[in-house]
Amino acid sequence: MTFNLFNVNVSHQGSYSCQYSYQNNMSPLSNTVIITVVNLQQPSISHSAPIEQFVEGSQGPVITRGHSFTITCSTESQYFRGSFHLLRGSNITKSESAVSHSASFSFPEADYSHEGNYSCVYEVSVSSCSIRSSASELLLITITVNLQQPNISHSAPDGRFDEGPQGPVITRGHSFTIICSTESQYFGGNFHLLRGSNITRSESAVNHSASFSFPEADYSHEGNYSCIYEVSVSSRSFRSSASELLLITITASMRPVIGAAVSAVLLLLSVLIIILLLKRRQKQRNKETHSKCFFTKGQTASHSSKNEDDDEADYEKVEHGENMNHNDSE
C-alpha cells in the first residue's frame, strides 16, 4: 500500500516504519525511514559600491567601468554550513560558503563582461542530501562610462564683443568662436555643439577640445549654446551630460551710426558756414551804403555854399534830403 503525503511541512518529518496486520495478527515493524523536511526560503540579493561610482537606474544599479562593486546574497537562519551560488542568467558564475547566512561576491574592476541579470541560490546538505532553494529576484547590473561634464567658452579674434550680464554680446558682421573642452579621460571622441536642445555642429576632439567658428555673426546665431562630449569605448558609444549654457547675443554694428553722425555734423558745419558768409556779406553791403550816403552829403554842402543867394525854401529841401540819407545809412 502507498501512503501519499501532500503539502509537506516541518511537522511531517520524522522516522517512518510499516507494519502489516491480518486477522488481528500483527507483523513485526519494518525497517525505519527517516524523513527530513527542508524548507529553504528564497534568498535575498543586493549590491554595494562607493556612492560616487554608481547611479541607481530605473532597472538596477549602473556601475562605472573600471570601478569596484559587490553583490551580496543572504538568507534567514535555517541551516548552517550552506553555500551560495551566484548566477548570471541561468549559469553559475561564482560560489561562496555562507558566513552568518550570507556571502559576498566582489568585482574589483567593473567591465562590460560583468553586465547582466544576477540571482542567488542557497544550497545546504541535510542527511547527505544536497538541497537548493529557489532563485532570488533578479538584479540587473549595467556598466557605463562616466564622462565628466565638458566646459564651454568663447573668443572673438577681432575683439568685437562686450561682456553682458548674461553672456557675450557680439557685434553683427564680426567673427567669434565657441570652444568646447573636457579633462583627459579618453583619447579621441567628438564634441557636439547644441543650440537649445538641437545639435547644430559636430567636431572631432583634438587635445580634448574642439572649436566652432562663426566667421560673420548674424542675428540667426543668437541663442543658448552647450557642449556634449561623445566617445566610443569597446565598440559602445557614451555621451557626457551637457555643459553649462552660454548665451550669445548679437548687436547691430556701429559703423552706419557713426557714418550718419559724421554726415550730420558736416551738414551742420556747412549750414553754419553759409550763414556766417551771408551775415558777413550783409555787413559789407551796409558799410558800402553808409559810405555812399556820406559822399552824397558832402556834395550837397558844397553846392549850398556856392549858392548863398538861393531862397530859404531850397535850403530846407536840401537839409531834409540830408536827413533822409542819414536815416537810410543807419
Rank of each mutant, 00 (worst) to 15 (best):
L276T: 14
S130K: 13
T64D: 02
D328L: 15
M324I: 15
H85W: 07
L87N: 12
I131A: 06
S119G: 06
R132G: 12
Y16M: 03
Y20A: 10
S113H: 10
V231A: 06
A103P: 05
T300D: 11
K292Y: 02
T251V: 00
A260F: 09
S48W: 03
E322K: 15
G173W: 11
L194C: 07
E322Y: 14
E163F: 01
F161I: 08
N198I: 03
T171L: 01
T75V: 03
T289G: 01
E312W: 13
S46R: 13
P215R: 02
V257D: 07
G159Q: 00
E330K: 14
T296L: 14
F295H: 07
A217P: 06
I178F: 00
P150K: 12
H174W: 07
L247P: 09
R201M: 13
G298P: 08
E222Q: 07
S220R: 12
S11C: 00
S113L: 01
Y79D: 03
N325Q: 08
S130F: 03
Q53Y: 02
E76M: 06
S125H: 10
V231S: 01
E115T: 11
L86V: 04
T182A: 11
H303V: 11
A313W: 11
Q299S: 05
T251C: 04
K283S: 12
S77W: 11
V121N: 11
H208Q: 14
E222D: 04
S155T: 10
V206N: 12
H12A: 14
L277A: 14
